[in-house]
Amino acid sequence: MKQTSSNTALMVYAIRPRIQAEKKAVFGSEHFLKSLALFERLQENTKRIVSESGLEAIWIFDDLQEGKTFGERYAKAFSDLFQQGYDQIISVGNDIPGLEASHILEAQTQLQNSQTILGPAEDGGNYLIALSKSSFEEETFFQLPWNSNKLHQAIKSLFQANEGSVFQLEYLIDIDDFDSLTRFKADLKSGDFFRFISHLLRSILAYIQEEKNFLWEVIPTKDNPLRAPPALLP
Protein backbone atom coordinates (compact mmCIF):
# COMPACT_ATOMS: atom_id res chain seq x y z
CA MET A 1 0.00 0.00 0.00
CA LYS A 2 1.37 3.36 -1.02
CA GLN A 3 1.99 5.82 1.82
CA THR A 4 2.32 9.58 1.78
CA SER A 5 5.62 11.25 2.55
CA SER A 6 4.17 12.59 5.80
CA ASN A 7 3.14 9.05 6.79
CA THR A 8 -0.43 10.23 7.32
CA ALA A 9 -3.39 8.19 6.12
CA LEU A 10 -6.83 9.63 5.38
CA MET A 11 -9.30 6.92 6.36
CA VAL A 12 -12.87 7.25 5.11
CA TYR A 13 -14.78 4.97 7.44
CA ALA A 14 -17.98 4.61 5.49
CA ILE A 15 -21.41 3.13 5.95
CA ARG A 16 -22.86 2.16 2.59
CA PRO A 17 -25.57 4.53 1.32
CA ARG A 18 -28.21 1.77 1.21
CA ILE A 19 -27.55 0.87 4.85
CA GLN A 20 -27.62 4.55 5.83
CA ALA A 21 -30.94 5.01 4.05
CA GLU A 22 -32.44 1.96 5.75
CA LYS A 23 -31.29 2.96 9.24
CA LYS A 24 -31.98 6.67 9.11
CA ALA A 25 -34.98 6.90 6.73
CA VAL A 26 -34.56 10.67 6.52
CA PHE A 27 -37.76 11.06 4.47
CA GLY A 28 -39.69 8.21 6.08
CA SER A 29 -39.86 4.55 5.04
CA GLU A 30 -42.23 5.34 2.15
CA HIS A 31 -39.54 7.54 0.56
CA PHE A 32 -36.63 5.10 0.82
CA LEU A 33 -35.36 5.86 -2.69
CA LYS A 34 -35.15 9.58 -1.85
CA SER A 35 -33.09 8.78 1.26
CA LEU A 36 -30.88 6.48 -0.82
CA ALA A 37 -30.32 9.24 -3.39
CA LEU A 38 -29.33 11.61 -0.57
CA PHE A 39 -26.70 9.29 0.91
CA GLU A 40 -25.35 8.36 -2.50
CA ARG A 41 -24.90 12.07 -3.20
CA LEU A 42 -23.18 12.55 0.16
CA GLN A 43 -20.76 9.73 -0.65
CA GLU A 44 -19.94 11.27 -4.03
CA ASN A 45 -19.36 14.58 -2.26
CA THR A 46 -16.98 12.86 0.17
CA LYS A 47 -15.01 11.36 -2.73
CA ARG A 48 -14.54 14.82 -4.20
CA ILE A 49 -13.43 16.32 -0.90
CA VAL A 50 -10.85 13.66 -0.06
CA SER A 51 -9.47 13.95 -3.58
CA GLU A 52 -9.11 17.71 -3.17
CA SER A 53 -7.18 17.20 0.10
CA GLY A 54 -4.32 15.53 -1.77
CA LEU A 55 -3.94 12.88 0.94
CA GLU A 56 -4.07 9.18 0.21
CA ALA A 57 -7.65 8.10 0.86
CA ILE A 58 -8.27 4.62 2.23
CA TRP A 59 -11.95 3.63 2.12
CA ILE A 60 -13.10 1.14 4.73
CA PHE A 61 -16.73 0.00 4.78
CA ASP A 62 -18.21 -0.82 8.16
CA ASP A 63 -20.13 -3.91 6.97
CA LEU A 64 -16.87 -5.55 5.83
CA GLN A 65 -15.04 -5.00 9.11
CA GLU A 66 -14.48 -7.58 11.86
CA GLY A 67 -16.20 -6.96 15.18
CA LYS A 68 -19.59 -7.27 16.86
CA THR A 69 -20.14 -3.57 17.57
CA PHE A 70 -19.45 -0.38 15.65
CA GLY A 71 -16.83 0.57 18.24
CA GLU A 72 -14.96 -2.71 17.82
CA ARG A 73 -14.99 -2.44 14.03
CA TYR A 74 -13.94 1.20 13.98
CA ALA A 75 -11.12 0.66 16.48
CA LYS A 76 -9.91 -2.33 14.45
CA ALA A 77 -9.70 -0.12 11.34
CA PHE A 78 -7.41 2.33 13.16
CA SER A 79 -5.33 -0.51 14.59
CA ASP A 80 -4.86 -2.18 11.20
CA LEU A 81 -3.63 1.04 9.56
CA PHE A 82 -1.24 1.82 12.41
CA GLN A 83 0.15 -1.72 12.08
CA GLN A 84 0.75 -1.10 8.39
CA GLY A 85 3.19 1.64 9.32
CA TYR A 86 1.21 4.86 9.42
CA ASP A 87 2.04 7.19 12.28
CA GLN A 88 -1.04 9.41 11.95
CA ILE A 89 -4.59 8.74 10.78
CA ILE A 90 -7.27 11.27 9.89
CA SER A 91 -10.70 9.63 9.85
CA VAL A 92 -13.89 11.04 8.33
CA GLY A 93 -17.28 9.57 7.49
CA ASN A 94 -19.31 9.76 4.29
CA ASP A 95 -22.45 11.56 5.53
CA ILE A 96 -21.24 15.08 6.46
CA PRO A 97 -22.51 17.58 3.86
CA GLY A 98 -20.55 20.50 5.34
CA LEU A 99 -17.19 18.73 5.30
CA GLU A 100 -14.54 20.45 3.19
CA ALA A 101 -10.96 19.62 2.23
CA SER A 102 -9.92 22.54 4.47
CA HIS A 103 -11.10 20.62 7.56
CA ILE A 104 -8.93 17.66 6.62
CA LEU A 105 -5.90 19.82 5.85
CA GLU A 106 -6.34 21.75 9.11
CA ALA A 107 -6.35 18.44 10.98
CA GLN A 108 -3.16 17.41 9.18
CA THR A 109 -1.49 20.69 10.16
CA GLN A 110 -2.62 20.51 13.78
CA LEU A 111 -1.36 16.92 14.12
CA GLN A 112 2.13 18.38 14.12
CA ASN A 113 1.33 20.08 17.44
CA SER A 114 -1.27 17.81 19.03
CA GLN A 115 -1.79 14.07 19.08
CA THR A 116 -5.59 14.30 18.82
CA ILE A 117 -7.82 16.41 16.56
CA LEU A 118 -11.61 16.26 16.84
CA GLY A 119 -14.27 17.61 14.52
CA PRO A 120 -17.46 17.70 16.62
CA ALA A 121 -20.89 17.14 15.11
CA GLU A 122 -23.92 18.98 16.43
CA ASP A 123 -25.58 15.70 17.46
CA GLY A 124 -22.83 15.00 20.01
CA GLY A 125 -20.71 12.76 17.79
CA ASN A 126 -17.64 13.53 15.67
CA TYR A 127 -17.35 14.00 11.92
CA LEU A 128 -13.53 13.86 12.06
CA ILE A 129 -11.13 12.07 14.38
CA ALA A 130 -7.39 12.39 13.84
CA LEU A 131 -5.00 10.39 16.01
CA SER A 132 -1.30 9.72 16.36
CA LYS A 133 -0.13 6.16 16.80
CA SER A 134 1.40 6.95 20.18
CA SER A 135 -1.98 8.08 21.57
CA PHE A 136 -4.06 5.12 20.36
CA GLU A 137 -5.10 2.20 22.56
CA GLU A 138 -7.54 -0.11 20.78
CA GLU A 139 -9.42 -1.60 23.74
CA THR A 140 -10.02 1.76 25.41
CA PHE A 141 -11.01 3.32 22.10
CA PHE A 142 -13.70 0.79 21.17
CA GLN A 143 -15.31 1.06 24.61
CA LEU A 144 -16.23 4.72 24.05
CA PRO A 145 -20.01 5.47 23.77
CA TRP A 146 -20.19 5.22 19.98
CA ASN A 147 -23.40 6.19 18.19
CA SER A 148 -24.55 8.33 21.10
CA ASN A 149 -24.75 12.04 21.85
CA LYS A 150 -22.12 11.56 24.56
CA LEU A 151 -19.33 10.51 22.22
CA HIS A 152 -17.62 13.84 21.58
CA GLN A 153 -17.32 14.75 25.22
CA ALA A 154 -16.21 11.22 26.15
CA ILE A 155 -13.45 11.02 23.55
CA LYS A 156 -12.34 14.57 24.30
CA SER A 157 -12.10 13.79 28.03
CA LEU A 158 -10.23 10.54 27.37
CA PHE A 159 -7.48 12.11 25.29
CA GLN A 160 -7.23 15.22 27.43
CA ALA A 161 -6.60 12.97 30.44
CA ASN A 162 -3.91 11.08 28.55
CA GLU A 163 -2.25 14.00 26.74
CA GLY A 164 -3.58 17.22 28.24
CA SER A 165 -4.39 18.86 24.88
CA VAL A 166 -6.97 18.19 22.17
CA PHE A 167 -7.44 20.47 19.16
CA GLN A 168 -11.06 20.99 18.15
CA LEU A 169 -12.34 21.99 14.72
CA GLU A 170 -15.63 23.80 14.10
CA TYR A 171 -18.99 22.11 14.65
CA LEU A 172 -20.74 20.61 11.61
CA ILE A 173 -24.10 18.94 11.04
CA ASP A 174 -24.27 15.16 10.69
CA ILE A 175 -27.27 14.04 8.62
CA ASP A 176 -29.23 11.69 10.88
CA ASP A 177 -32.85 12.68 10.19
CA PHE A 178 -35.11 15.11 8.36
CA ASP A 179 -34.56 17.86 10.93
CA SER A 180 -30.77 17.80 10.58
CA LEU A 181 -31.09 17.92 6.78
CA THR A 182 -33.40 20.95 6.86
CA ARG A 183 -31.13 22.72 9.36
CA PHE A 184 -28.19 22.19 7.04
CA LYS A 185 -30.20 23.41 4.03
CA ALA A 186 -31.12 26.55 5.98
CA ASP A 187 -27.41 27.41 6.18
CA LEU A 188 -26.99 27.16 2.42
CA LYS A 189 -27.73 29.96 -0.01
CA SER A 190 -26.92 28.35 -3.33
CA GLY A 191 -24.78 25.70 -4.96
CA ASP A 192 -25.24 22.22 -6.39
CA PHE A 193 -25.99 20.56 -3.08
CA PHE A 194 -28.54 23.23 -2.17
CA ARG A 195 -30.31 22.62 -5.48
CA PHE A 196 -30.13 18.86 -4.98
CA ILE A 197 -31.76 19.03 -1.53
CA SER A 198 -34.37 21.49 -2.76
CA HIS A 199 -35.27 19.14 -5.62
CA LEU A 200 -35.65 16.22 -3.20
CA LEU A 201 -37.88 18.22 -0.88
CA ARG A 202 -40.04 19.52 -3.73
CA SER A 203 -40.55 16.02 -5.12
CA ILE A 204 -41.64 14.75 -1.72
CA LEU A 205 -44.01 17.67 -1.22
CA ALA A 206 -45.51 16.94 -4.64
CA TYR A 207 -45.99 13.31 -3.63
CA ILE A 208 -47.70 14.35 -0.39
CA GLN A 209 -50.02 16.72 -2.26
CA GLU A 210 -50.89 14.02 -4.78
CA GLU A 211 -51.63 11.60 -1.95
CA LYS A 212 -53.80 14.22 -0.25
CA ASN A 213 -55.74 14.81 -3.48
CA PHE A 214 -56.28 11.07 -3.85
CA LEU A 215 -57.67 10.81 -0.33
CA TRP A 216 -60.06 13.70 -0.98
CA GLU A 217 -61.37 11.75 -3.98
CA VAL A 218 -61.95 8.41 -2.25
CA ILE A 219 -62.93 9.39 1.30
CA PRO A 220 -66.60 10.42 1.69
CA THR A 221 -67.32 13.93 2.96
CA LYS A 222 -70.38 15.67 4.37
CA ASP A 223 -71.02 17.18 0.95
CA ASN A 224 -71.06 13.77 -0.65
CA PRO A 225 -72.40 11.25 1.89
CA LEU A 226 -73.36 8.71 -0.76
CA ARG A 227 -69.83 8.22 -2.06
CA ALA A 228 -68.65 4.65 -1.51
CA PRO A 229 -65.99 4.07 1.17
CA PRO A 230 -62.46 3.19 -0.05
CA ALA A 231 -62.88 -0.50 0.81
CA LEU A 232 -65.75 -0.78 -1.64
CA LEU A 233 -64.04 0.85 -4.56
CA PRO A 234 -63.13 -1.48 -7.47
Rank of each mutant, 00 (worst) to 15 (best):
Q43P: 00
Q43C: 07
Q43I: 00
E44H: 13
T46R: 11
K47I: 12
K47T: 11
R48P: 01
R48E: 15
I49D: 02
I49P: 00
S51A: 11
S51R: 10
S51N: 10
S51F: 03
E52L: 09
S53H: 07
S53I: 02
S53M: 08
G54E: 11
G54C: 14
G54Y: 11
L55F: 15
E56S: 05
E56V: 06
E56F: 02
A57M: 06
I58S: 07
W59Q: 06
I60A: 10
I60K: 13
I60R: 13
I60Y: 09
F61D: 07
F61T: 08
F61K: 05
F61G: 00
D62R: 06
D62N: 13
D62C: 03
D62K: 07
D63N: 12
D63M: 08
L64K: 12
Q65G: 01
Q65R: 12
Q65Y: 01
E66L: 12
G67Q: 07
G67W: 10
K68D: 14
K68F: 13
K68N: 15
T69E: 10
T69F: 12
F70Y: 15
R73M: 10
Y74M: 03
Y74V: 01
Y74W: 01
K76F: 14
K76D: 10
K76C: 06
A77V: 06
A77M: 05
S79P: 01
D80I: 05
D80L: 02
F82K: 04
F82I: 04
F82M: 04
F82L: 07
Q83A: 13
Q83P: 00
Q84E: 14
Q84T: 08
Q84L: 14
Q84F: 08
G85S: 06
G85R: 02
D87Q: 15
D87H: 13
Q88H: 13
I89Y: 10
I89F: 10
I89L: 08
I90W: 11
S91G: 07
S91H: 07
V92N: 04
N94Y: 06
D95C: 06
D95P: 01
I96A: 06
P97C: 05
P97V: 04
G98K: 05
E100S: 14
A101F: 05
L105T: 03
L105M: 10
A107Q: 04
Q108W: 06
Q108C: 00
T109D: 12
T109C: 06
T109L: 08
Q110N: 08
Q110A: 10
Q110Y: 09
Q110R: 15
Q110G: 01
L111G: 02
Q112M: 10
Q112H: 09
Q112C: 04
N113T: 08
S114G: 01
S114Y: 15
S114E: 11
Q115W: 08
Q115L: 11
T116S: 10
T116C: 14
I117R: 11
I117F: 09
I117E: 10
L118D: 07
L118K: 08
P120W: 12
P120D: 11
D123R: 05
D123L: 04
G124M: 03
G125P: 00
G125R: 10
G125Y: 00
Y127G: 02
I129K: 00
I129R: 00
I129N: 00
L131G: 08
L131M: 09
